[in-house]
């Protein structure tokens, strides 16, 4: 295999560049032009008056707060396989598994906690789940609390969240 050589020009060595000032002025020029433009027409500024105004552009692909899905019979879909906890880069999913004795399946989570203070909302857990038991299609984009514990999504809280884009029940 022949090697491809790409020549890269080195910048930053000319006197103009070493003075820094011209580059700074160049940047300020852009900022100032935006400022003047915005001042002349205040309504063109793309700003949302949150929280009075709520976002309207949340799509089904938006990664909101998690939820745990249900089976057709209304019971929890999750089988406590730990795939999400294994995939999670923030290691913020804490599962304690137990034997399921209602005859629906073998295993289920006794405890399923997601610490949203540590979660980075990457969605890996959703991708890792083999049975579509966890989703982020709740459209909930903020979480409010007064203590650290308020930010931990427990199993019951996760089950109570609704999916807002249809597909309420697990597909798997």
């Amino acid at each position: 295999m022949s090697k491809k050589v790409k020549k890269v020009t080195r910048y930053g060595n000319s006197t103009k560049e070493r003075l820094y000032l011209p580059a700074i002025l160049e940047g300020l020029k852009i900022t100032t032009s935006h400022l003047l433009q915005n001042l002349s027409d205040i309504n063109s500024v793309e700003t949302l008056e949150y929280p009075e105004e709520q976002p309207t552009d949340i799509t089904s692909r938006y990664r909101g707060l998690h939820r745990l899905t249900h089976r057709a019979d209304g019971t929890i879909r999750c089988v406590a396989c730990f795939m999400c906890a294994t995939a999670c880069p923030a290691e913020c999913i804490d599962i304690v598994a137990t034997t399921r004795d209602d005859g629906v399946d073998d295993k289920m989570p006794l405890q399923f906690n997601i610490d949203t203070l540590e979660c980075i909302f990457c969605g890996y857990c959703v991708e890792a789940c083999p049975c579509d038991a966890i989703r982020m299609d709740t459209g909930i984009f903020s979480i409010i609390g007064k203590k650290r514990e308020d930010f931990i999504l427990t199993k019951d809280r996760l089950l109570s969240h609704k999916g807002v884009f249809g597909e309420e029940i697990s597909r798997a």
């Binding site: 406590a80 396989c81 730990f82 294994t86 598994a97 295993k107």
Partner: peptide
């Protein structure tokens, strides 16, 4: 040991 822990942990 059943369901106590996944072995890769």
């Amino acid at each position: 040991f059943k369901f106590k822990q996944r072995v890769w942990f």
